[in-house]
Amino acid sequence: MPAQAPAPARAAPPLAPGVLGAAEVAALPFRIELPSGFQLFEGRGAPDARVYSVRRAGKTFAMIYTGSASQFPIYDGEQVTAAGRVSVIVSEGTRRIAMEHLFQQPTAPNEIHVWLMSLSGADRDAAERIAQSVDPK
C-alpha cells in the first residue's frame, strides 16, 4: 500500500479588510495589549498621520492617532502628567477613569493620542485597560 501524502497545511483564515496582523501590529510605533477577541484596524490617515481603532465584534472600544498634530484633548477633565504621558481623567461617581492619553516625543510620530469611546460597564473597563496598555516604542 503506498504511503499517503501528508495533508496540506491549513492557511490561517484571511483577516477582515483593514485588520492588522501580528507582524503589522509589531511594526507600529507603539505597543498595545489586545485581549482575546479584540482586533486593531487601520483607518484613513493622512501623509504624516495614521488612525487605528480597537474593535471587538464590530464595536469600537478605543482609537489611536499617530502623527504630528492630534486633537488632544477630546474630553473635559483633569489633566495629569505621569508615566511619560498626559492623561485626561474624569470622575464618575467614586471612580476616576482615564479617558485619553497623549504621548509627545521629538521623533516621528511626534504624538500618539489614545482615547476611549463612549461605553459603559464592562466594555468601558476593557477599553480603559487597552488604552492604558499603549506605550510608544
Rank of each mutant, 00 (worst) to 15 (best):
R31V: 05
T60V: 13
A83P: 04
S53D: 08
A49E: 13
V90P: 00
A49Q: 05
A69C: 01
M63P: 00
T66Q: 09
I97G: 01
R95Y: 03
Y65F: 12
G37D: 05
A62P: 13
G58F: 04
K59W: 01
D48Y: 14
A69K: 06
A82L: 12
R44T: 15
V90I: 10
P73N: 09
R96D: 01
I89P: 00
F72T: 02
F61R: 10
S53H: 12
R85T: 06
G84K: 11
F38V: 04
G37R: 01
A69G: 06
R55F: 10
K59R: 13
T66E: 07
V90G: 04
T94H: 10
E42Y: 06
S87C: 01
I97L: 15
R56E: 14
D48P: 07
A82D: 15
P35G: 10
P35R: 09
S36V: 11
S68G: 14
I74G: 07
G84E: 08
G45T: 08
Q71R: 11
V80C: 03
R95V: 04
R55H: 12
G43F: 08
A57G: 13
I32P: 00
T60S: 14
A83I: 07
V51S: 10
S36F: 08
Q71W: 05
G67P: 05
L34Q: 14
Q39V: 15
E42R: 13
I64T: 02
I64M: 01
V51W: 06
G77M: 00
P73R: 02
F41W: 14
Y52Q: 03
R96H: 03
G67W: 00
T60K: 12
Y65D: 04
D48E: 15
I97N: 11
V88P: 00
F38T: 02
I97F: 05
R55G: 08
M63I: 10
S87D: 12
A46Y: 07
A82V: 08
V88C: 12
Y75V: 03
Q39C: 11
F38K: 03
R96S: 04
S70F: 00
A57M: 14
V90R: 14
A57D: 15
G67Y: 00
G67K: 08
A82M: 03
F72L: 02
V54K: 01
Q71M: 00
A69V: 02
T60C: 07
S91N: 14
P73F: 03
